[in-house]
Design a protein around this nucleic acid. Structure first.
Length: 464
RNA sequence: GGCGCAUUCGUCUAGUGGCCUAGGACACCGCCCUCUCACGGCGGCGGCACGGGUUCGAAUCCCGUAUGCGCCUCCA
């Protein structure tokens, strides 16, 4: 029994319509006039938000929550807003706001309207707190202001992803809504902003479930309309613990640096806790928007599988038109401090497109096109005769292209009575400096006769 | 400790009482292709946490147990 429209999820209307189903059954007196008279009454469409705190880079879990919000908004034709929750000034990091926006933009999660800061509503929050105080719904406590929670009954709501959740009111403690220094706390500012911004659906991590009954009561106390809640599961590392440094990348920026494509991240993240059916795994941004629904979000947490991410990124990399692949490669190299010849990168790109899963593999895999190599003697072991033969075969070869190079080298191998793999491996090591490389003949063509011959010669003498 | 949430192959998941001999994908293993790697093709391994119910019939409904996680800040 989860979701608001079980069995009726064939279209999206019920989601947007099913609002204000949160219930509270406290034996309290009738509330007086609404304190908040924001113009949300006329809102029809869906409006959601992502509310990161500016304490550092955008975490992948926050990005996933942002994605669900964005997908929902775009699917419903509604709005997606960005709100920075910076009430805790002590933990704020100066560049974080810009970094968060960069990450969001890189992922293509565009937000509507300007981003807002929680701190800018400090004064509004204080006024509401004063009003609450005057109405006896809050009280002072050592300089701070606490909100009076109901003592009896239960506070409950129908969560779109987990069904009905109930909290006995006696368990709810009176939360501090304004600190002694006058700044509002998260549990006060956040729901108030949701009210002022006309947020219709609060889609957030399930670590906020225990906060929800408190926020619900605050919203009720100010006489505002309750939004619909959807608590999405968290993401853990492969060991079942919170995603942390030792698992690898955890911030969106780090995945970008590792050479993942934004379309990969979107697709992969969407599938963490959501699936359109049992078969589909590859979906474009548009398809994601078209098929996404909160009803199909799973309530159980998932683990972040880096291997699957790599596989998926490889799929996206290979699917790129080759010119686009080269373009992305160039962009990535530029962002990561590789000042390599663009024309040569563009020519090398097709040789690696099918072979790498992440852009950051390029320097290691194709670096021999751009810098000298230093093959180890052990890898060259016993290859001297073939190296000499290769040199002779290529020295006057015309044309110097992959098909001709392959023919010449195969002929040389035949003369030495070597199997292809035995013959070509020393050449590969000599020319690329590694036992693993892009296609040998294409690589030699791109490298050019001069460089190839000189590398063959150097390796030939050290292997002898 | 209290409260809450969760529990299908190693991982992501499909599944809403009979279509399930539990389907797909990643990973893994084997074979094929092959100049290495990768791609691709074929095949394989592997799961309903446990115990009680309800029912002609349960992965699906109910109860309990276990385990994991989250929150209990004048953090967000």
């Amino acid at each position: 029994m989860r979701g608001l429209c079980v069995n009726t999820c064939t279209d999206s209307a019920p989601i947007a319509a099913a609002r204000s189903i949160a219930v509270s059954i406290p034996p309290e007196e009738e509330t007086c006039a609404p304190i908040c008279t924001a113009a949300y009454a006329t809102r029809m469409a869906v409006r959601v938000r992502i509310a990161p705190s500016p304490t550092g880079l955008l975490h992948i879990g926050t990005a996933r929550t942002a994605l669900f919000n964005w997908l929902f908004a775009r699917h419903e034709g509604g709005e997606f807003r960005l709100r920075i929750e910076n009430t805790d000034t002590s933990r704020e990091v100066a560049e974080a706001v810009d970094q968060i926006q960069d990450s969001l933009r890189w992922l293509g999660l565009d937000w509507d309207g300007p981003h807002t800061f929680q701190l800018d509503r400090m004064e509004d929050c204080r006024q509401v707190a004063e009003r609450l105080l005057a109405d006896g719904k809050a009280y002072e406590d050592e300089g701070a202001i606490r909100f009076r929670m109901p003592d009896e009954g239960v506070t409950a709501w129908d969560d779109i992803v987990r069904g009905r959740i109930e909290y006995p009111n006696e368990k709810l403690e009176d939360v501090v809504i304004v600190r002694s220094d006058g700044r509002p706390t998260y549990n006060f500012a956040s729901p108030m902003e949701d009210v002022w911004d006309g947020i219709t659906h609060v889609i957030r991590g399930d670590d906020h479930i225990p906060n929800t009954p408190k926020q619900l009561n605050i919203i009720r106390a100010v006489g505002a309309e309750i939004p619909v809640y959807a608590h999405v599961p968290m993401i853990f590392g492969m060991d079942g613990n919170k995603l942390s440094k030792r698992h690898g990348a955890q911030a969106v920026e780090e995945f970008r640096t590792a050479g993942y494509l934004p379309e990969t991240m979107l697709n992969f993240l969407a599938l963490l806790g959501w699936a359109p059916d049992g078969e589909t795994t590859l979906m474009s941004r548009d398809e994601l928007v078209e098929r996404f629904s909160l009803e199909r979000v799973s309530p159980s947490p998932s683990q972040f599988d880096y291997q699957k991410l790599d596989w998926m990124n490889g799929v996206y990399l290979r699917a790129l038109p080759s010119a686009e692949f080269a373009h992305r490669l160039l962009l990535w190299l530029g962002e990561n401090g590789f000042d390599w010849d663009a024309e040569r990168v563009t020519r090398a790109a097709p040789l690696v497109q099918e072979k790498i899963a992440r852009l950051d593999e390029f320097p290691g895999f194709a670096g021999f096109f751009f810098r000298d190599v230093d093959p180890s003697e052990a890898d060259l072991d016993g290859g001297a005769p073939m190296l000499t033969a290769a040199e002779e075969a290529l020295i006057a070869l015309e044309p110097f292209d992959a098909p001709a190079i392959e023919a010449a080298l195969r002929a040389a191998a035949d003369r030495l009575e070597l199997k292809p793999r035995q013959a070509f491996q020393p050449i590969r090591v000599a020319v690329t400096g590694s036992k693993v490389s892009p296609g040998l003949f294409e690589s030699i063509e791109l490298l050019g006769r001069e460089t190839t011959l000189s590398r063959l010669r150097v390796a030939g003498s050290s292997a002898a």
